[in-house]
Amino acid sequence: MKSAMGRSTDRLRASTKEWWPSVAFLGLFALAVEVLARTGSVPRVILPPVSDVAGSISGMGGPFFLRHLGMTAFESVVGFAIGAAAGLGIGVMMYYSRVLERLLYPIVVTSKAVPVVAMAPLLTFWLGYDVWAKTLMAALVSYFPVTVGTVSGLKYVDEDLTDLVRSFGANEWVVFTEVRLRAALPNVFASLKVGSVLSVVGSVVGEMAGSTGGLGYLLLSSIYYVDVASSAAVCVVMAGLGLSMFASVSLLERKIIYWRPGADNGGR
């Protein structure tokens, strides 16, 4: 039996092996941008050197920047939590009730058909400039994939499993909690991962439509001052926020879907 530390080392080794081509590609890309910008092949005002962008990021440790980052992170996390809960709830209702499915399905699809950029000014107009309009934006963009993932996850459960549990005398609630919900989890988590990244997009678009703070606001300000390096730095931080949300959901997935090959089932 391997120790927990041994398993962690193995996992780190496997991750390194998996990710090194992407890291190497990004490194080469950054090097190319640096060379193009430093040699003047592309004007610095259009393409800032990567070192300048890195300098801007390292200068973002102050309370001013952290306030903006904290605002976007709050909107994204809370918006995603609301969107995920709504998506799960609507998905379950749509699966179990044909009436609700017929009622909600067109609304769900229509809500997604309206571009998020078009919705942002309206929501700001209705809800004001504070964080709640942006939180709602994040919730609105993240609930759709979770709804779709939940419905398809619940629909395509192996019916032999549900028959089996019924053959033990289980009622519908037990069939749902013991089989259907758990079997749907891989689909649900795939959609949660999409929703987690989209929630950052929702909050940033909301901030760009009208706000007194947040990374979207910061991005617009730096563009206004033609500070391309800072703009790029804010974009990198946004990507980092999205990736952190994605990684957190992935970590949760490994813990909850522990039975899947390659999942973290050590100690269970």
Binding site: D160, L164, V165, F168, G169, E178, V179, W259, R260
Partner: peptide, 27 residues
């Protein structure tokens, strides 16, 4: 009534012992 299907139809999230105990747990 005990049923055995063509496929093993074990619950992948339960251990072997928990799968065997499942009918009793449900009751």
């Amino acid at each position: 009534i005990g049923v055995v299907f063509q496929k093993p139809t074990l619950l992948p999230w339960r251990s072997v012992l928990e799968n065997v105990l499942l009918p009793l747990r449900i009751r």
